[in-house]
Every structure is written in structure tokens, then in C-alpha cells.
């Protein structure tokens, strides 16, 4: 129940209690997800969802951060190659 996965918002609407719901596409599996906790989200953006609830939008810029670190690690590893 704790395995939140990112999915793309494809549709948004309000339910009977006035809560924002949406259809979210998880690699082809479309689920109805509550979007009340991500009021800033727009159709086409990615959210992280847990048990039917989006708990955050995915920051697409920050998503590249780990690859930045890897690049730095690569650069450092190169420095460690001994010179003749």
C-alpha cells in the first residue's frame, strides 16, 4: 500500500462532495484518483499517487537531479585515473 507510483493526469472533474477527482494514466492503466491535495496540478502533468490519492505533483526539473549527480561522479572518477 506504500508503493506510490507516478502517473499522468489525463482528465479532471469535481465529485458530489466538491472534491477534485481525475483520471490518471499509470503506463496504460487508467485509475480514478483524488486530486484534492494537488490543487496546482494541470492535465498532462505527472502526480505521485498512493491508494487512490495524489500526494504531490512530480517536479520534472528535479527528476533529472540524480543524473546530474551521476555526471559529477563520472567527472570525479576520471580525475582518479592516474596520469603516466
Amino acid at each position: 500500500m506504500c508503493l506510490g507510483v507516478p502517473g499522468k493526469v489525463i482528465e479532471m472533474q469535481s465529485n458530489a462532495a466538491g472534491v477534485t477527482m481525475g483520471k490518471v494514466d499509470f503506463a496504460g492503466v487508467v485509475k480514478e484518483i483524488c486530486l484534492a491535495y494537488v490543487p496546482e496540478v494541470k492535465v498532462g502533468e505527472f502526480v505521485i499517487a498512493h491508494a487512490g490519492f495524489a500526494i504531490n505533483t512530480l517536479d520534472e526539473k528535479e527528476a533529472l537531479e540524480v543524473f546530474e549527480t551521476l555526471k559529477q561522479i563520472d567527472d570525479l572518477a576520471e580525475l582518479e585515473i592516474p596520469q603516466p
Binding site: 500500500m1 506504500c2 472534491v19 483524488c34 500526494i55
Partner: peptide, 10 residues
């Protein structure tokens, strides 16, 4: 944990 609390509260 805290991850399911928002849904259960809602």
C-alpha cells in the same frame, strides 16, 4: 503510515 492518512482522512 503518513502516506495513507490523507486518503483515510478524506
Amino acid at each position: 503510515f503518513e502516506t495513507t492518512a490523507p486518503g483515510n482522512a478524506m
